[in-house]
Design a protein around this nucleic acid. Sequence first.
RNA 1: CUGCCCGUAGCUCAAUCGGAUAGAGCACCAGCCUUCUAAGCUGGGGGUUACAGGUUCGAUUCCUGUCGGGCAGGCCA
Length: 552
Amino acid sequence: MKEHLTDLLFNAVRQLTDEINKSQIIIERPKLIEHGDFSTNIALVLSKTLKKQPRDIAQLILDYLPEASHFNKIEIAGAGFLNFFLSALSHQTIINKVIKEKDGYGGSQNGKSQKIQIEFVSANPTGPLHVGHGRGAAIGDSIARLFEFSGWEVTREFYYNDAGAQIDNLMRSVKAHCLNIKPDHKDFPEDGYRGNYIADIAKEYLAKTSIKCADNKIKASGDINDEESIRIFSIAYLRNEQDQDLEAFQTNFDIYTLESDLYKNNKVNFVVDTLIKEGHTYEKDGALWLKTTNFGDDKDRVMKKSDGDFTYFVPDIAYHLDKWTRGFIKVINEQGADHHSTISRVRAGLQGLNKNIPKDWPEYVLHQMITVMKDGVEVKISKRAGSYVTLKDLIDEVGCDATRYFLAARRADSQLIFDIDLAKSRNNDNPVYYIQYAHARVEGVLNQWEGDRNTLYINAPHPFETQAEKKLIKRISEFPEVVVQATNELAPHQITNFLKDCAADLHSYYNDSKFLVDDELTKKARLALIYATQCVIKNGLALLGITAPKKM
RNA sequence: CUGCCCGUAGCUCAAUCGGAUAGAGCACCAGCCUUCUAAGCUGGGGGUUACAGGUUCGAUUCCUGUCGGGCAGGCCA
């Protein structure tokens, strides 16, 4: 429809000037239904080159536009906008299309089955998942669902930093507990983790418990002096716990990659050797440096410390080379904003490998920090201090649907205040119920009708007259465009906004009209409209990983 | 000090490559259930879009500066 309108306008405008290309024709969706289903500002844009009043240009374009059955009215409004109003035939086409495509409505094959990899959460196995990881999970998984819906072949991936200094801290913290040294004791590791969960791990370790981790089963030796065993058990314990939390959050991963494997498989060494060979490194102060300044960084970075260990971003480069080698033309990393300094280093390292990797690959979505409020005061999130808002707590108290909704409902790049009391409330304050309620309400009506939903096509143009009907039809017709934009901008919050608006339109219509009326044609037309709306809401909720209940 | 993100109604947030009267929810006020789910609807009050300039037919959006908040800037991760 939009493309068709663009063509019509392009042909009309070409009668006025040659200095125009198709990309300049912009079709918008007006916010107000009074401004029609589509509008264009092309007359305003052309006013300078044509040296005419915008409204006069709009009239000329209007004169050159052919008769079209899609619209029953085209008008000039405001400063020179052209507004298009859909005809009954178009309304019929839209509603029937939704009902025909059902679960597929809004999706596309734009991705052409190309491979995309989305890495998200990627929490260190040093503690339970907290609300920040939840934000990453909600946003990352929704982005994955958006790309799937748009015809991409998506791989969801979780990267475990199971090597390095923070794992030593974990091991020493657990060991301290095994030796009955508590966090307030002077001998407790200074950089140790102080949460209660550390005591739990120690207890299980001493009890020689077995833990399921990925495909393996890890049995604790219970030997206090076996640091390797403590380390392996602690990681397995926390990974297992994280896996359970993610499952409860309706978030599943296709692949888990371990940092330790990158070392084992010599992928880290390969990257280091290549960078040396390509001449992007130098030695200074007993350390090996990477010339990241060659690629836009403001200073060079240490790759290999004087004690022989690599710095954290080196395995990161190896990991991303691995992603590239696996054939992902598009890679998106969803992380907390505190990781933003790694972007330039990873990209610089990849450039230095001389593998023709694009400069802006991989892409990043960084979400800002979350402030958690409870009873009107801020809850500090600190792993080491032990004060902790876990994702599991939220899911238990608020439910998966509401948690996912709240964490995905806002632009990633703005700081977010998560009000536990609000999210917990199972009443009208909670927008997720508002949307789900719209879905359930339609289900109620369709059940009372008792007809066969597969016969709910509109067979002849039906005059939808009321504002509520026109708004609703316009709304559901916009859904595919919203999906495209949310996908392109990696912005699932646009889906939550859309759903809120769509639910509001449905509720208005519900109060405005009766559906189960005597006149057969009117009844079927109205039922078809709300059924189509229900499909849209269901598809939208699915993109967010939220259930669409039939009864509430 | 330097870089990145943010600043919109009392609160939490939107706003379609720059568009029409800056929109929702919560809170507040007034109405709507013997008829399909009132977890709903209708109406009302509430704004110098942090501030000051600039670009243009038009700026919440782009540019410059100031102020305020967050995050980074370790041979920490």
